[in-house]
Amino acid sequence: MAAITLKSVGKTYAGGVNAVRGIDLDIADGEFLVLVGPSGCGKSTLLRMVAGLETITDGEIAIGGRVVNEVEPAERDIAMVFQNYALYPHMSVRQNLAYGLKNRKMAKEEISRRVDEAARILEIGAFLDRKPKALSGGQRQRVAMGRAIVREPSCFLFDEPLSNLDAKLRVQMRGEIKQLQARLGTTSIYVTHDQLEAMTLAHRLVVLNGGKVEQVGTPLEVYRRPASTFVASFIGSPAMNLMPARAEGAVAHVGAARVQLEIPAEGAMTLGLRPEDLRAVVPGTEGALHLKTAYVEELGAQRLVHGTVEGTPFGCAMPSDAALADELYLAAEPGAAHAFDAQDGRRLG
């Protein structure tokens, strides 16, 4: 178990590309931290720097108080689960699990005790003697996790471990990873581009964009108070509606519609409204948002209505029994409006 500290960590590739810039993070002992962002945001690079697979060109990384910049991956006391699992194809599951322990010259009895223990936890005991080729995707995933567990490291690193699984299995494994981490209490850093995975797993999540941190916070903090339009559009599904508006006092004007803001502002701004924070009002209501419907998606529990408001694409989530019409009049729930700077997209207030 260990805390991990990143001090103004940066990565510049030989070609001069800045993949990661000035990252400061304090990851508490036992915390489950998720790095989330679109592809190319630097999240995998950052994880691989913690693992020791990428050199650190700026700043320093400490694991359990020890600066590890120049330490070999094997000596950092970490374990990693890869997206493609990276199981050794010519070794049986047992040999896969044991390989890292054998390289550490651990006693045979201890190795087999740990392998059996991991197999029990992950329910892979039945195929310990099979080769990875003979396993399903979900089973391989478990073996990859097993290889991390047997090491009993001070930190787990996950690099998009679920993205090669089908949707149903992904949800199931997500739950298992969460329980496992809670049970073992091992500090974990988890990289994903899937905001739902990030929300459901994280104690805290770090939203990355262009190699920089956009926001750090608990899932609810990030969902409720996104720090920028980027975070607002990235976290939450369906995505938050963002539209140009004009603020006067604490009211945002979008065409004829008016939305109450939580803080006063003046002039051009970007207004953000989550689809689930809207409700239909009587047609023609003064100051309501006027949605021209393009199409409807039925989700069963809800229906998503897509269209435009004042020419901006706009969606809203309605109860499944809500009446449908070519035009809808919508009002925002109190306190639902998010205000962002029109230029740099940062949250106002």
Partner: peptide, 25 residues
């Protein structure tokens, strides 16, 4: 896959061990 070499490094295999244990088989 690159990850195999990375996994081996994390598993404590140096270049010769990786060659002998993973690449050759």
């Amino acid at each position: 896959p690159d990850e195999l070499m990375e996994a081996a490094r994390i598993d404590g295999a140096g270049p010769l061990k990786f060659f002998w244990d993973i690449l050759l088989p």
